[in-house]
Simulated assay, not measured.
Amino acid sequence: MRTIGGALGAQAVPAFVTSALAAGTSSPAESGYATAFVVSAAVMAAAALAALAVSGSRLAA
């Protein structure tokens, strides 16, 4: 699972970063980095909640 997550993250982050180019250049704008950070943080939070749910169900059993 960790390898799959790393592979997906390695493809998704550059897509977000390069989707927002600075006007008149081929360089990414700061907003692309901010979007990539927010999306990464949201995915990390969802994964943490899923991990807590799984570990909580194991403790109850």
Rank of each mutant, 00 (worst) to 15 (best):
Q11T: 08
L49S: 11
A12K: 03
S19F: 09
V39I: 13
L21F: 02
A45I: 10
L52P: 05
S26M: 07
L8N: 06
A34P: 01
T25G: 03
G24T: 11
S57M: 14
L59R: 15
L52G: 13
S31I: 07
G9Q: 07
A50N: 09
A23Y: 05
V38M: 12
V13H: 01
V17N: 03
L59T: 15
V54C: 01
A50P: 04
A34G: 04
A15C: 00
L49I: 12
A50E: 11
P28C: 00
E30I: 11
A15F: 04
V54P: 02
T25A: 01
V43F: 06
V43P: 02
T35P: 03
L52R: 12
A34C: 02
R58H: 11
A46V: 14
L59G: 12
P14I: 02
F37M: 11
S31M: 03
G24D: 13
G9R: 04
A36S: 13
T18H: 01
A22Y: 02
A7C: 05
L8I: 15
A10E: 09
I4W: 10
T3E: 11
I4Q: 13
A36L: 05
V54S: 04
A23S: 11
F16I: 06
V13K: 00
T3Q: 07
P14L: 02
V13G: 01
T25V: 05
A60G: 06
V39E: 01
S55A: 09
S31W: 00
T25N: 05
A7K: 04
M1E: 11
A41F: 14
